[in-house]
Amino acid sequence: MTSSGAQLKILVCVKQVIDPETPLSAFKIDPGTKRVAPAAGVPPVVNGFDENAVEAALRLKDSVGAEVTVLSMSDSFAMDVMKKPLSMGADALVLAQDSQFRDLDPFASAYVLAAAIRKLDGFDLILCGRQASDWDNAQVPTGIAEMLGLPLVTVAQKLDLASGGIVVERALPDGYEVVEAPLPALVTVSNELGEPRYPTLRGIMAAGKKTPTTFSASDLEVDPARLAPRMHLLDLAVPPRDSKCEFISGENEADTGRQLALRLREAKLI
C-alpha cells in the first residue's frame, strides 16, 4: 500500500445486514440452522454504522477531494441495496462474492477483505463502521488492520487530514480523545459523526450506470481452510420476555400522571 502525493484514495468496507428496524414480532430464528430468518417483505440494508463510514469518506471527498471505493463481501447481494453508497456519492463498488463467503465469522471475514484490499492496493485510508448491527462483533475492522499492519483508530466522530496523517476525534462515553495516525490507516466510524446523507436523484442515476468489480475466492487466492469458523455456535434464541406490566390509567391524562406518581410511591420507588 502506498500513500502517494496524488489524490486521496479511500476504501470503505460495508456489510449488507438484516434491517435492524425489523419489528420484533417479525424477528424469527430458524432453530434448525440457528440463523435469523429474513422477514418477508423487509429488504436488507447497508449496516447503519457503515453508512456513517461512507458519509465520513464523502465529507473528505467534499473537503479535500478523494476517490471513494466501496468494498463488500458475501455469498449474495441485493444489488439495489449495495448500490446505495454509490448513489450517495461513492465512485466505485467492489464485491467479493463467492458461495464460500456465506456467514463467515469475523476472523474469516477480515481475512477475505484483507485479501481483496491487497489485490486492489493503493489506499491511503480504509474506513469501516464501528460494528455491524447483526452480530455486533466489532472485530472485522480490527482484523483487517492487524493483517495489513495498519494503524487503527476506532469509534471516530470526526476525521481530518493533517500533514501526511489523519487526526481523529474518538468518541468516549463522557467526551472524546484526539488520536493522530500516519497514513495509510484504518478508522472505524460511529453514529456520533452525524447522519449519513440521502442519495440524490443524480447520484441514483449515476449509480445505475456503474458496474461493480467482482472478486471470487479464487481471484483472491483464498485458502478455504481459513474460512472455517473459530467459535462454535451452540444456540441462537430470542430471549423470553415475561411481560408483567401494570398499566396505570386515570380519569384523564392529568389524573393518570397523578395516579402513576401515587402508585410509584406506594411501591416505595419514589
Binding site: P20, V36, W135, H232, L234, L236, V238
Partner: peptide, 15 residues
C-alpha cells in the same frame, strides 16, 4: 452473548 442489537442471545463455545 447479545446479538442482533439485543434481539437474540447466542450461546457460543471456544476453540
Amino acid at each position: 452473548r447479545s446479538v442482533y442489537g439485543g434481539n437474540a442471545l447466542a450461546t457460543v463455545g471456544f476453540p
